[in-house]
Structure formats: structure tokens, C-alpha cells
Design a protein around this nucleic acid. Structure first.
Length: 590
RNA sequence: CGGAGCGUAGCUCAGCCUGGUAGAGCACUUGGUUUGGGACCAAGACGCCGCAGGUUCAAAUCCUGUCGCUCCGACCA
């Protein structure tokens, strides 16, 4: 390709709405342009890099035995209702209406579609296993699109769906995908690692996410350098000790704490109740009903874990007004003990009772973090502004509905497996593999007949790679002050030939054309910078775009019978003209 | 959706406080001088100052509303 014939609109300055390095570089190097928030056009250079990532994904998926299909982006809402995700995933689904006012769902993912196909076309164990994948545009109504392609409303995803006869067989497929993913990211030049992950709305038994370490990543990963344990913080657990049990002491005692509404304030004199001897009482409204969550004063609630336990993602913290109405006190004075209303007077008490009834408050569930199990001599709010209770024994005084691990792990806690200190780092999620089980196959009746003629649901898995996100992750991981440093495997062009004089009669240009023809015939992706620009502009642009190898032809070196070959980020080497093509090929292979 | 900020030329931004009819740099066009790391000179073209109301003799500037964008939080590949 000749530079002058394509479109590579490089920018000296990054547009103001780009925040992180990779987003700025995508724009500055002329790979993408924004059409609207979270919606981007791919320009020629960006598309070339994207196609390379796609091709790597395709090759490894094929190698792992998956077969490519293409499923519709326009999907009838009925199938989403059938799986139940029309409600549970409602927040991210784009919906459109046709001219007959019929509703459609834009594909956010395709479990429903593929399972419909499996239900219709797979009848026998002889047809299994099958693993279908596609690389296609996905739509998600992200609450907050961010960082260019990292979190977009429209993006390209590789999604795969496997169907197996048994759980054991599904495990083998899962492992194949896991291995394929490791290869894919390695081939893209990425340092990826897998972590245990939360399954979220998709559901299923367990999953791993593939992460790219990056300060700008939106995920926090807990990991142990000693034994290799690694998990998304949403899922991570640690071996932190439970609350020390003490003698069950005296009866509960109410004491005045005027104006004290934080854990910290209560931990100071004159109260001096250590945070680890306090019970934090949080009120959430989940599916319209109140839920009480108890965790230790020095811990934080992990909302992802909480969501997993209560089985809905539709929840929010209760407002101060709601809490006051329900419990008769404001945040900072709450406890799961005195959920009474005797202290309220007449009319207010009636309102209180009505609210409780309407909100099913009397059946309000109390979930407590495991770390509080058996705790006593604890302090918590008295449900009366300005008062707390001490000598609280959880098992004795609070009717806990259920105990769960609900806390957020923090750095430095002991690893649950080996006891060494856990660390936390930020990362970008580029892939996710799920073991689904039979959730979708049962909902869509995707079943097969086994050897004995028994009808059984297929055991499913699903596997996603954010292709456009992966592309940006490559840039986020591979750049310097001058621009992108493409790994050879995904570079839009592998070699940029830069003649410093582009007059067709000039020796530099003639030679450039000759190299271009030779390298192209050898299957190398080459771009020839035939613009009549000053050398500085060409060099700066080549560095910005980040071609792995640049071959410069200028008077100075040509006079010595040489050309200059410079790997991006490596040392410049002078090579005899006749050896230049071979030298470049050698560099490509190394 | 809650909190914060920003919408002026293709890009980066000034002007707004204190109202008087549109600016700079880069990019673009033409001519010239340059030519190994984002050149210089000259001349040009490019603006519904996000949109809609309002105040005013007069609005980019003040007021109200609205839309869009960015950042922090919840969501995700």
C-alpha cells in the first residue's frame, strides 16, 4: 500500500476526550474516529490491525475444534424472555422497534440464538460435542461507555458456545477453550493471565477471566505470587481469620453516642470501640424488598458477591429516608436487633407498620458475613438516633437468615491456599470462559438422545473474547512516548519503507519501489510512505503508528551504498542495499 | 441513574468574570525558500460560539431549559 493512497489521518495532539494512552494513540495514529459516545469507525489502519487480531482468534478457535457461524444481530425479544434474560439483562439490552411497532433486541450476546439452533438441529449424542463461534458486532447499552474501544456501546466480540453430553465432557471443552485463549493472547503479544471470576448475569457454574495487567484496567485482581492463586476481586476470598470469640458476656446494654454516625467516630474516645468489634448494618433494596446485610466494621461489602447470593442484580442501597421509615433511625445508628417500633408514637407508628407490611419488612432477610459468625461482645446501632448497643452476641441476639462470604479482600491478607500475602493489581478483562451447565439448554429444550435412548439436556459452555478491546489492550501494553509499538502479529503493516525523496526519478524512490515489490511478493505487509513530506514528519508518523520495522532510504546512506533498517524501539542498523530485503526478512523472523 | 466538569474553525485552545457583533497555534489551499526527526515567509479558505427560549438597543459572553461529550461510582468482552 502506498501511504498517499490510503487514509492515515495522524494527529499531533490527542482529542480532549481521550484519557488513557491507548485511546489517545488509537485516535492520534488514525486508527479510529468517534461517531458518538462509545461508537467508533475503524479507518483503514485500524481495520487492518483488527483483522489481524480476528484472524489469530479464528485460527486458534478452528485449531481447538470450534466451527464458525454467523448469528443475527437482530433478535426477537421472545427468546430473551424464554431464557429470563429479557429482565435480568435488561439494563444492557438495546431495543429497537420496526415500522410495525414490533420490538427487536440487538445482539448483546447469543446464547439464546445458538441454543435455539442446537434445540432444532442436535438430536443425538453422535452429533456431540459441538462448539460454535462467531466474530461479530455486539451491542450493549453501557451505562457509561469509556476509554474508546475499551467499553463501547458497539463492539466486536468473538463468542463461542459449546454443547457436550456430560459435565465431564464439557469440562474437557472448557479446558480446550482455556488453552486456546492463552495461545490467542500470547500470539497477540499480550501478557495475559487467567483468574477465577464471578459468573454475573450469564449465570453458570464457574468461570475464568483472561486479564491483561494495566493500571488503566477496570478490574482488580487478587493474586498470590507464591501458589499462583488469582481471582477477580469480585470473587476473591482469603484466609483471613474470623472474629475472635469471647465469652458471651453480659446482656445487651444501650449507651448514648450523640452525633456518632461512622465506624471511625465510634472507634475513638470516649467510646473506643475498635472497628473489628463493630457490626456494620447495611440496608439494600433488592427486587423492591429490603434486605439487611451485616459485615464487620473494618470490612467492606463486596456487592458482586452480595448480588450472587441474593440472585438478582436489581438492587440498590436504601435511601436514608427509607431507612428511617423502616427502622426508625438514620444510617449510622442502625442495627439488626431492635427492629421494633414501640418507641414510635401513634401516627408514625402506624405509617411504620404500613410500610413494613407493604415492603415485606417483617420477613426482611438478614445476611451476615462469615467473618462475623460466632462473634460476641460486639457493638452495633440501636436503631435509635444517638444510641448504640454493646455486648451484642450475633448468634444470641440477631436472627441471621444466612451466612455468606460477603467481604472485599484487601491486599496483604493471607492466601486461603498457602497463607502467603495476597497482592492486588489492576487489569483489563479481554476474555471470559464460562461453564454454563444446562441453564440454557433446559430453557430452550436443547437435548439429545444418549446411547440408551434417554433424552438429556446438552451441557453448555460459553466463551467470549472482546476483539476490539483486545486490540486496544495491545496498544495499552505496547507503547512509548513516541507512539504505538506493534507486535509483529497484529501490526497493520509490518514494514514501512520511507524514501526521503519521492521524486519518481530519484534513486531513493526507485529503490523504495523495488523493495516494496520484493517484500510484498514475499508475503510481507508493506506500506510505502510516498508522501512528499519532510523527513521529520515521516519519521514521527512512522513512530506514532508504530510499524515494527522501518526502512529509510536517504541520500546520506545511499551514498555509502546503504539503507537504514530500524526496528521500532530497537537500534538502527545500516545495511548494504543488496542485503536490505534479506536483512528485513531476518528481522521479521526473529 | 447520582456526583463533577466541558461544548467557540478539522485538532488543541483563548475570548465569557466586566455584553458592543470572532481569535491564536496546528492542519488545509496557492506561491516562494527549505529538505535526515513534526521547517520558514507571504497570501488565502474554513465558524448557525451545541440547540431552544429569555433579558437587553445589543448576547459566544448574563438567565432558564435542553441535548451532547468527558471524568468518578454501579454494569461488562
Amino acid at each position: 500500500m502506498k501511504w498517499s493512497q490510503t487514509l492515515i489521518p495522524t494527529l499531533r495532539e490527542a482529542p480532549a476526550d481521550a484519557e488513557i494512552a491507548s485511546h489517545k494513540l488509537l485516535l492520534r495514529a488514525g486508527l479510529i474516529r468517534k461517531l458518538a459516545g462509545g461508537v467508533y469507525s475503524f479507518l483503514p489502519l485500524g481495520l487492518r490491525a483488527l483483522r489481524k487480531v480476528e484472524q489469530i482468534v479464528r485460527e486458534e478457535m478452528n485449531r481447538a475444534g470450534a466451527i464458525e457461524v454467523l448469528l443475527p444481530a437482530l433478535q426477537p425479544p421472545e427468546i430473551w424472555q424464554q431464557s429470563g434474560r429479557y429482565e435480568t439483562a435488561s439494563a444492557v439490552l438495546f431495543k429497537a422497534k420496526d415500522n410495525a411497532n414490533r420490538e427487536w433486541v440487538l445482539s448483546a450476546t447469543a446464547e439464546e440464538v445458538i441454543t435455539t439452533i442446537a434445540a432444532g438441529e442436535i438430536n443425538s449424542y453422535r452429533q456431540l460435542p459441538k462448539n460454535f463461534y462467531q466474530i461479530s458486532v455486539k451491542f450493549r447499552d453501557e451505562i457509561r461507555p469509556r476509554f474508546g474501544l475499551m467499553r463501547a456501546r458497539e463492539f466486536i466480540m468473538k463468542d463461542a458456545y459449546s454443547f457436550d453430553v456430560t459435565d465431564d465432557a464439557a469440562q474437557i471443552t472448557y479446558q480446550k477453550m482455556y488453552d486456546a485463549y492463552a495461545k490467542i493472547f500470547a500470539r497477540c503479544g499480550l501478557k495475559a493471565f487467567a483468574v477465577e471470576a464471578d459468573t454475573g448475569v450469564i449465570g453458570g457454574k464457574f468461570s475464568h477471566e483472561f486479564m491483561i495487567p494495566a493500571e488503566t484496567g477496570e478490574n482488580e485482581v487478587v493474586f498470590c505470587e507464591s501458589c499462583g492463586y488469582a481471582a477477580n476481586i469480585e470473587k476473591a476470598t482469603s484466609g483471613i481469620p474470623k472474629t475472635a470469640t469471647r465469652e458471651i458476656g453480659a446482656a445487651i446494654e444501650k449507651f448514648a453516642t450523640p452525633g456518632v454516625v461512622t465506624i471511625e467516630a465510634l472507634s475513638k474516645a470516649p467510646y473506643s470501640v475498635p472497628a473489628n468489634r463493630q457490626i456494620k448494618t447495611l440496608i439494600y433494596i433488592a427486587d423492591g424488598k429490603p434486605v439487611i446485610v451485616l459485615i464487620r466494621g473494618d470490612d467492606q461489602l463486596n456487592e458482586a458477591k452480595f448480588a450472587g447470593k441474593i440472585g438478582t442484580t436489581v438492587f440498590r442501597p436504601a435511601t436514608a429516608e427509607e431507612i428511617n421509615l423502616f427502622l426508625g433511625a438514620h444510617p449510622g445508628n442502625l442495627g439488626a436487633i431492635n427492629m421494633q417500633y414501640e418507641h414510635l408514637s401513634g401516627e408514625i407508628q402506624q405509617t411504620f407498620l404500613d410500610v413494613r407490611k407493604s415492603q415485606a419488612w417483617d420477613n426482611c432477610k438478614i445476611f451476615a458475613d462469615e467473618r462475623l459468625r460466632g462473634a460476641n461482645e460486639m457493638t452495633t446501632g440501636a436503631n435509635e438516633d444517638g444510641f448504640h448497643l454493646r455486648n451484642v452476641s450475633i448468634e444470641r441476639d440477631i436472627k441471621v437468615t444466612d451466612w455468606f462470604d460477603l467481604r472485599i479482600v484487601t491486599a496483604g491478607e493471607p492466601c486461603a491456599k498457602c497463607g502467603k500475602q495476597l497482592k492486588i493489581r489492576r487489569a483489563i478483562e479481554v476474555g471470559h470462559v464460562f461453564k454454563l451447565g444446562t441453564k440454557y439448554s433446559e430453557a430452550f429444550n436443547a437435548a439429545y438422545l444418549d446411547e440408551s435412548g434417554n433424552r438429556k439436556p446438552c451441557v453448555m459452555g460459553c466463551y467470549g473474547i472482546g476483539v476490539t478491546r483486545t486490540l486496544q489492550a495491545v496498544i495499552e501494553q505496547c507503547n512509548d512516548k513516541d507512539g504505538i509499538i506493534w507486535p509483529l502479529s497484529v501490526a497493520p503493516y509490518q514494514i514501512c519503507i520511507t524514501p526521503l525523496n519521492v521524486d519518481v526519478n530519484n534513486e531513493a524512490m526507485k529503490l523504495a519501489e523495488k523493495f516494496y515489490a520484493e517484500l510484498t511478493s514475499r508475503g510481507v505487509d508493506v506500506i510505502l510512505d510516498d508522501r512528499d513530506e519532510r523527513p521529520g514528519v515521516k519519521f514521527k508518523d512512522a513512530d506514532l503508528v508504530g510499524f515494527p520495522i522501518r526502512i529509510a532510504l536517504g541520500e546520506k546512506s545511499l551514498a555509502k551504498g546503504e539503507v537504514e533498517i530500524k526496528p521500532r524501539g530497537g537500534a538502527l542498523q545500516a545495511v548494504k542495499i543488496d542485503n536490505a530485503v534479506e536483512a528485513a526478512m531476518t528481522l521479521l523472523k526473529s
